[in-house]
Design a binder for these strands. Structure first.
Length: 760
DNA sequence: GAGCACTGC
C-alpha cells in the first residue's frame, strides 16, 4: 500500500532537544497560605539560615542547599510548607542539580556564560534559582530577569518556580508580559518575554534594575533575542557588575560562545529517550500523500503509541485529517486495525479545539485487541510551542512555511520551504519524550545531509527591519552599520528600513531620530501605523484611527468557514458592515457594532457567532486599543472623536489614512486589468476579500501578499490630491519614471496647481 | 474570487 517503504533504517540515534521543560498544567500552581513566622532566626545552619551578603558571588552549592533545605524560607523568613519539601525531592533528581557547584564556579569566574541544556534538564526553572542563592539580588535592591520568547512560557515557568520556592506568584517570583504585569516591589526573579525586556531597555539603556540577565531559548533567534544579545554585549563593557547567561539548546552553542568573546560553556544533559530515524529511499514528489500513507502504515504495522505529523498549513492539515480519518476507518474494516482518532493542530484553531489533542488515545475495540491510536496533524506549533506527551512516532515531510523578506519590492511573504537540520532534529525529538520512539523522514538521508541547511535563518535576516531600526535608534545605537549583530542583515534591508523611516520623518537625513520618531517608538506598532496614529488628531478623528489601527494589529476578525453555503452566509454577513469606501472603514463599522447596545443585548460572544466574526480577535483589538489609548494620553496625542453627523466624517478618516499610508498606494491600470503599486510598479489585484468595487482609481493598502497571485489586501479608496498634499516630497514627479503612474500624477499636480491659483 | 507558519511589544 505504500511505496515510501521499505524505509532504510539509519543507525543514527537521536536525543531530543526539545524546549519547554514546563508544561502548561504548572500554570495552575496551587498557592499555599504561609503560616506566620513565629520562631526566631537564630537556628542557623542545620536548620537553614540567612543570606550572608559578604558571600555574594562566592557561595558554594552546599551554601545554597543549606539555605534551601532549612526550616525557614530564607527569602521570606516564613516556615517552608510540607509541599515545598516534596517538590524539593523531585528537583534534586533533575540532571542539572548535579552541576550546581560547577555552575557556581563558572558563574563566579566570568561575566558572561553560555549554558546549553536539552529537554528535561530543568534549566529554565532551576538555573535562575541557583543564581538567586548566589547573587542575592534582594540584598542589593536588584532583580534577576529571565526572558522567554513566548508569553505562555514566561507565565507557566514563573508559576512553577514560585511554587518551587514556596512563595506567592507575583511576589518574590513574578512575570511581566504585554497586558499583564504580575510583579511587585518584592519581586527578585522576573520571567518576561524577550520583547518586554527590549521595551524596558528603550527606557533604561543601562538596564540598571538588574544584577543578572538570563536569555533563555536563545537558539530560537527571535528578533528581540538578537537585538538583546547585541545590546548586552555592549552593555557588559559599561556594567561590569552585570552577569549575563545565555541559555540554548545544544546545537549552536559554539556560535554563542564565539559571539560573546569566547564565553565559557556549561552543558547539562537532558532526559529523553533515543529516537530511531528512518529515511525514504527516494525523493517523494507528493509529500502530503506520502505523509498520509506513512501514517496509515504505522497504524497498521507498529506497536502502540501516538503519531505526530508535521505539515505546513491549515488547508493542508484539514485535507490530511479528512483523508487519514476515512482511510483509517477502512483499515479498521478491512485489516482489523484498532481505532484511529485524528486531530488537527494549528495556531488559528480556537483554544478549546487545540486542547483536544490532549485527549487520551482511543481504546482498543476489545481487551487485548490491536491498539487504538491518536494522530496529531500539526504545523510547526508542535515543534516549539506545544509539547504533547505520549507521541512515539513522528512523520516529518521536511517542509514548513517560513517568512521571507524581499527588500527589493519590500514584501514579506510566506513560502513553503525545506526545514533545517536543527528543525528536523527538534521534530524527531518529539517522539522520545515518554519512551524510545521512531521518526520517519520523508526524504532521503542524502538530502538530509546535503540539502538541508544547519540552522534556520534567524528572524533578523527574514524581516522588514523598519521597526527594528527605529528601536535601535531609541536604544541609543547611533551607528547602525557597525552594530554587532550576531548575523548582520543584508545592507539593502537596512537601507530600505532607513529610507522608509526617513520618508515617515521618523529619522532625519543625517539618520538622527526626530521628535516624531521618538514618539513613534513608544507605540508597539509598525512605524507606519504609529505615524498614522500620531498624525490623526490633525484630521479630527484620532479615536476612529485608533480603532482602525487596533483592528489592523490583531488577526482578521472575519470568519469564513469552508462549505459553499457557509461561505455565502459569511459573505452576506460581512456585507452588513461593508463601507463603500473600503475595508478600513468596514473594520471601523465592525468594531462599533461589536461595542453597540445591540451586540451587548444579544451577548457579544453570541453576536459574533451570528455575524461570522471572531470574538477573540475583537476582544484582543479592545485590549490593544486600551493600551494604545493610554499611551496616547500619557504622550499628549489628542484624542478626538469625529463628528458622525458631519458630512466629512468618513472623508476625514480617509484623509488621515492617506496621510499615514502614502507609501502603500496603488493605482488602477489605465489599460488592462488590475492595479499597479505606485512605488515599486508591481502589478497587483485587489484581494477578493475586499468590499471595494473594482472602480476606484487610487487606493491605499495595508499589505501586499504574494500567494497564487499578487494581491493587495485591506484597501481604502483615496483621492490623489490628498497624497500630493500630505506627502509632497514623496510625490514629487521627479521621483517617478515615465509611465502610467507618472502621467496620472502629472495631471493631479496640474489640477492642484489650478485649484491653488483659483483660490488665491 | 482567495486563504494566515509561528511569535512579540
Amino acid at each position: 500500500m505504500s511505496d515510501t517503504r521499505p524505509l532504510k533504517k539509519s543507525k543514527t540515534k537521536h536525543t531530543s532537544t526539545s524546549i519547554s521543560e514546563i508544561e502548561a498544567e504548572h500554570a495552575e500552581a496551587e498557592m499555599l497560605a504561609h503560616p506566620p513566622a513565629a520562631e526566631d532566626r537564630s537556628l542557623h545552619f542545620h536548620d537553614g539560615g540567612e543570606f550572608n551578603l559578604e558571600k555574594r558571588h562566592e557561595t558554594s552549592a552546599a551554601y545554597g542547599e543549606r539555605l534551601g533545605s532549612g526550616k525557614k524560607n530564607p527569602f521570606t523568613g516564613e516556615n517552608f510548607s510540607t509541599k515545598y519539601f516534596d517538590i524539593l525531592k523531585v528537583r534534586h533528581d533533575l540532571p542539572i542539580h548535579q552541576q550546581r557547584a560547577e555552575f557556581l564556579e563558572m558563574f563566579h569566574s566570568t561575566q558572561i556564560m553560555v549554558l546549553v541544556g536539552e529537554t528535561g534538564s530543568g534549566k529554565s526553572t532551576q538555573l535562575p534559582q541557583f543564581v538567586l542563592y548566589d547573587d542575592m539580588p534582594h540584598l542589593i535592591g536588584k532583580q534577576v530577569a529571565c526572558t522567554q520568547p513566548r508569553r505562555v512560557a514566561a507565565m507557566s515557568v514563573a508559576a512553577r518556580v514560585a511554587e518551587e520556592l514556596d512563595v506567592k506568584l507575583g511576589e518574590e517570583v513574578g512575570y511581566n508580559i504585554r497586558f499583564e504585569n504580575m510583579t511587585s516591589n518584592k519581586t527578585i526573579l522576573k520571567y518576561m518575554t524577550d520583547g518586554m525586556l527590549l521595551r524596558e531597555a528603550m527606557e533604561d539603556h543601562e538596564l540598571s534594575r538588574y544584577s543578572c540577565i538570563i536569555l533563555d531559548e536563545a537558539h530560537e533567534r527571535t528578533l528581540a533575542t538578537d537585538i538583546l544579545m547585541g545590546l548586552l554585549k555592549q552593555l557588559s563593557d559599561r556594567r561590569k557588575d552585570l552577569k549575563i547567561i545565555i541559555m540554548s539548546a545544544t546545537l549552536d552553542a559554539e556560535k554563542f560562545q564565539r559571539y560573546f568573546n569566547d564565553a565559557p560553556l556549561l552543558a547539562v544533559p537532558g532526559r529523553t529517550y533515543p529516537v530511531e530515524i528512518y529515511y525514504t529511499k527516494e525523493f517523494q514528489r507528493d509529500y502530503l500523500d506520502a505523509a498520509i500513507r506513512t501514517v496509515l502504515q504505522i497504524h497498521a504495522t507498529e506497536d502502540e503509541g501516538d503519531i505526530l505529523v508535521f505539515l505546513t498549513g491549515e488547508e493542508e492539515i484539514e485535507t490530511a485529517v479528512k483523508k487519514i480519518t476515512l482511510e483509517g476507518e477502512q483499515l479498521v474494516r478491512e485489516e482489523g486495525c484498532g481505532p484511529l482518532k485524528v486531530y488537527p493542530l494549528y495556531g488559528s484553531l480556537p483554544p478549546h479545539q487545540q486542547q483536544r489533542i490532549f485527549e487520551p488515545a482511543p481504546q482498543a475495540f476489545k481487551k487485548g485487541g490491536r491498539p487504538g491510536r491518536k494522530v496529531i496533524v500539526s504545523t510547526n506549533i508542535a515543534e516549539t510551542s506545544l509539547t504533547i506527551d505520549g507521541v512515539v512516532y513522528v512523520v516529518d515531510p521536511g517542509f514548513s512555511k517560513q517568512k521571507v523578506y524581499n527588500p527589493r519590492i519590500r514584501v514579506e511573504s510566506l513560502l513553503v520551504s525545506p526545514i533545517s537540520k536543527a528543525s528536523a532534529q527538534q521534530r524527531a525529538g518529539r517522539a522520545g519524550r515518554t519512551r524510545p520512539g521512531k521518526c520517519f523522514r520523508l526524504y532521503t538521508e542524502e538530502a538530509f545531509q546535503k540539502e538541508l541547511i544547519e540552522q534556520s535563518y534567524p528572524e533578523v535576516l527574514r524581516s522588514n527591519l523598519a521597526n527594528t531600526v527605529l528601536e535601535l535608534k531609541k536604544l541609543g545605537i547611533d551607528d547602525l552599520v557597525h552594530f554587532d549583530f550576531m548575523d548582520p542583515p543584508a545592507p539593502e534591508t537596512m537601507m530600505r528600513a532607513l529610507e522608509e523611516l526617513n520618508y515617515l520623518t521618523c529619522i532625519d537625513d543625517e539618520g538622527g531620530l526626530t521628535s516624531l520618531g521618538r514618539l513613534a517608538s513608544v507605540f508597539p506598532l509598525d512605524p507606519m501605523l504609529a505615524v498614522l496614529l500620531i498624525g490623526s488628531p490633525a484630521f479630527k478623528c484620532s479615536e476612529e484611527i485608533l480603532t482602525i489601527v487596533s483592528m489592523l494589529s490583531v488577526p482578521t476578525v472575519f470568519i469564513r468557514p469552508s462549505g459553499e453555503g457557509a461561505k455565502r452566509a459569511a459573505d452576506e454577513a460581512k456585507k452588513l458592515f461593508a463601507h463603500p469606501d473600503g475595508d478600513h472603514l468596514t473594520l471601523l463599522n465592525v468594531y462599533h457594532s461589536f461595542e453597540s447596545d445591540e451586540a451587548h443585548e444579544v451577548g457579544q460572544r453570541k453576536w459574533c457567532i451570528q455575524n461570522f466574526l471572531n470574538y477573540r480577535s475583537l476582544k484582543s483589538a479592545q485590549s490593544v486599543r486600551k493600551q494604545l489609548r493610554r499611551m496616547m494620553e500619557s504622550h499628549d496625542v489628542d484624542l478626538i472623536e469625529g463628528n458622525y453627523e458631519s458630512l466629512s466624517y468618513y472623508d476625514n478618516i480617509r484623509k488621515a489614512l492617506a496621510n499615514g499610508f502614502f507609501m502603500q498606494v496603488a493605482k488602477k491600470k489605465s489599460t488592462g486589468k488590475g492595479y499597479i503599486t505606485v512605488k515599486d510598479s508591481q502589478d497587483a489585484l485587489l484581494h477578493p476579500s475586499t468590499v471595494l468595487a473594482q472602480q476606484d482609481e487610487w487606493v491605499i493598502y495595508n499589505e501586499f501578499v504574494l500567494t497564487s497571485k499578487n494581491y493587495i489586501r485591506t484597501i481604502t479608496s483615496v483621492r490623489p490630491e490628498w497624497l500630493v498634499e500630505f506627502a509632497p516630497e514623496y510625490y514629487d514627479l521627479e521621483n517617478f519614471q515615465q509611465g502610467d503612474v507618472r502621467m496620472s500624477l502629472a495631471r493631479v499636480h496640474e489640477r492642484v496647481a489650478k485649484m491653488k491659483k483659483a483660490s488665491s
